[in-house]
């Protein structure tokens, strides 16, 4: 039996507002990436979508600032006055900022649009990638496995496509949605395997995953439906993808932060 005098810092450090950010940053990064791909092919077709991606970025950045306990200390300026390439969040800050600039230039039709779209493809890929990196970098949190480096970009793109099939001509986005749903589903299926074959904490991580397997059944089922319906009923497929990807990502973020060190099993 273990008891404490005093309090270790083991309480949850990311809350529901952070889960909303994980959703918004996926919509921002995914929409920006889709805009970039369209823009590289045919620059003019990306202008409308650029405004939408920019709106998602602004919304996400506002959410990030608003939910931060440091919001009225205005310390966020240091994100852009520091050079911290080992920090996923530093990459995210710059990825979002540079993507916003590229999107603004694309939306306004200023300068070489296809070049901006090419740059945007890189910066938006950073935005898609950094949430998974921010999780996987923490060896102390065994649920945040390295597989998330792939799952978060894939499911992030899927979340954006889930919205885009409603807003864009469905036949354009639906094939992408199907591929992203299948990729996310495959990675979600591999996730418990990766946990169980991980490092010293693999047994604990897998045991914790077993407590939440029902969420994976639900999320995985929704992703399967999304892939199955993508070309038949894109709007419904989008709803399934949005719900499925959100459930899986939120579970991983929420559960993964719990301290194994203090709670054990």
């Amino acid at each position: 039996m273990t008891t404490f005098y005093g309090l270790p810092g083991a309480e949850a450090f990311w809350h529901w507002t952070t889960l909303v950010h994980f959703l918004l940053v996926a919509l921002a990064g995914g929409t920006a990436f889709y805009t970039a791909v369209l823009g590289i092919r045919r620059a003019a077709s990306a202008r409308g979508l650029a405004w939408l991606a920019l709106a998602f970025i602004v919304l996400d950045l506002f959410m990030l600032w608003a939910e931060s306990p440091a919001r009225f200390r205005f310390s966020h300026v240091w994100l852009f006055l520091s050079f911290e390439p080992a920090s996923a969040i530093w990459w995210g800050a710059w990825g979002l900022a540079t993507s916003a600039l590229m999107l603004l230039l694309l939306a306004l039709g200023l300068g070489p649009a296809r070049f901006w779209a090419g740059v945007l493809a890189l910066t938006s890929a950073v935005v898609l990638a950094y949430p998974g990196y921010a999780l996987a970098a923490n060896a102390a949190r065994p649920l945040w496995d390295h597989l998330l480096l792939a799952f978060f970009p894939a499911s992030g793109l899927l979340l954006a496509l889930a919205v885009l099939v409603w807003l864009r001509p469905a036949e354009e986005a639906a094939p992408w949605l199907q591929v992203a749903a299948l990729a996310s589903l495959a990675l979600a299926a591999l996730y418990p395997v990766a946990l169980a074959s991980g490092g010293a904490d693999a047994r604990l991580a897998f045991a914790l995953w077993l407590r939440g397997w029902g969420w994976f059944l639900l999320g995985g089922g929704l992703l399967f439906l999304a892939a199955f319906l993508a070309r038949r009923a894109p709007a419904l497929a989008g709803a399934c993808a949005l719900a499925g990807a959100f459930v899986l990502r939120s579970w991983i973020v929420e559960q993964g932060q719990h301290s194994f060190f203090v709670h054990g099993f």
């Binding site: 450090f13 440091a70 240091w78 994100l79 969040i89 949190r141």
Partner: peptide, 26 residues
């Protein structure tokens, strides 16, 4: 403290639960 944006990345990374969010926002 003056640079901290309270993103909690360090709390996530600490294997020892040694960090906490001060209500003052850092």
């Amino acid at each position: 403290a003056e640079r901290c944006i309270a993103c909690a990345a360090c709390i996530a990374a600490c294997p020892y639960d040694a960090r906490f969010m001060n209500p003052a926002g850092y």
